[in-house]
Amino acid sequence: MDQEEEIKQLVLDAFQDEALYDAYVKVAEEKVFKKGELLIEQGRVCRFCYFIIKGAVRSYYAKDDKEITTSFCFEEDPVFSLESVTRQTPCPESFEALEDTVIEAVSFNDLLVLRQQFPAIERLWLLGVEAYAIWLEERLHSLQFNTAKERYQSLLQKYPYMIQRVQLRYIASYLGITLETLSRIRAQL
Score class of each variant (00 low, 15 high):
M1W: 11
M1K: 14
D2R: 03
Q3W: 12
E4F: 14
E4V: 06
E4K: 15
E5V: 01
E6H: 14
E6K: 15
I7Y: 05
Q9A: 12
Q16L: 14
Q16A: 13
Q16V: 12
D17I: 07
E18L: 09
Y24N: 09
Y24T: 10
V25Q: 13
K26E: 10
K26V: 09
A28L: 06
A28K: 10
A28D: 12
K31I: 06
K34L: 08
K34E: 13
K35V: 13
E37P: 02
L38V: 11
L39Y: 00
I40K: 01
E41V: 07
E41N: 07
G43C: 09
R44C: 08
R44Q: 11
V45N: 05
C46F: 11
C46A: 12
R47Q: 13
R47L: 12
F48I: 03
F48V: 03
C49P: 04
F51Y: 07
I53D: 05
I53A: 08
A56T: 02
Y61E: 04
Y61L: 07
A62V: 08
K63A: 15
K63S: 15
D64E: 14
D65A: 11
K66V: 15
C73R: 03
F74Q: 03
E76N: 15
P78T: 11
S81K: 03
E83F: 14
V85N: 04
V85S: 07
T86A: 14
R87E: 11
T89R: 08
P90D: 13
C91P: 01
P92H: 05
P92R: 01
E93P: 03
S94M: 00
F95C: 01
A97S: 03
A97Q: 02
L98C: 08
E99T: 07
E99G: 04
D100M: 03
I103C: 06
A105Y: 01
S107H: 13
S107P: 06
N109M: 14
N109E: 15
D110A: 06
D110Y: 04
L111N: 12
V113K: 15
L114H: 02
Q117W: 00
A120S: 15
A120W: 02
A120D: 11
I121A: 00
E122R: 02
R123I: 09
R123L: 13
L124Y: 05
E130D: 12
A131T: 09
A131Q: 09
Y132R: 14
A133Q: 13
W135F: 14
L136K: 14
L136D: 08
L136F: 11
E137L: 15
L140W: 08
H141D: 15
H141W: 05
S142H: 04
L143E: 06
L143D: 05
Q144V: 10
N146P: 04
A148M: 05
A148S: 05
K149I: 08
K149N: 10
E150L: 06
Y152M: 04
Y152C: 02
Y152E: 02
Q153T: 11
L156N: 04
K158M: 12
K158Y: 08
K158F: 05
Y161L: 08
M162I: 14
V166C: 01
V166E: 00
Q167M: 10
Q167F: 11
R169G: 09
Y170I: 01
I171S: 04
A172P: 06
S173K: 01
Y174D: 00
Y174K: 02
Y174N: 01
L175D: 00
G176P: 05
I177P: 00
I177A: 04
T178V: 11
E180Q: 11
L182I: 04
L182N: 01
R184C: 11
R186I: 00
A187K: 12
Q188F: 13
L189K: 14
